[in-house]
Nucleic acid binder design. Sequence first.
DNA 1: GCCAACGTTGGC
DNA 2: GCCAACGTTGGC
Length: 142
Amino acid sequence: MAYWLFKSEPDAWSWEQQKAKGEAGEEWDGIRNYQARNNMRTMKLGEKGFFYHSNEGKAVVGIVEVCKEIHPDSTTEDERWECVDVKAVCDMPKPVTLPDAKANPALANMVLVVNTRLSVQPVAEDEYLEICRMGGLDNPPR
DNA sequence: GCCAACGTTGGC
DNA sequence: GCCAACGTTGGC
């Protein structure tokens, strides 16, 4: 079971909007970066990931689950671009900010800290659990 | 709003 | 296949 992190500017697509979609979930469309797309290609149904607000907030605000595996991105005719669907699972009781993550030595190698520009990224299991711990999530969904 | 870091494009 | 020019992301 792998873990992921999805980045979104709240102006474009916020955690509130994601939660409003409920169980149906929503396409994680608009990704135009090969690395990010390749990460989505390896995602399996049911895998968990963080929902991260970039720009405003700069924090992990919730947890999502992959509810549809890789398929064409409906927002473009360009068949190079594919995406998955995700649905909201739960809030992060206490959002974990980027400065929080940077200040934690256990997260020094986290992609979020090391490569700030990658919008869909893998998260190691120990990093996943550490962020959940910092966020006050006692029983992280696995 | 600025700018560093990074990715992509296109000329050669 | 290299690399300069350009565009975009995202932290500050």
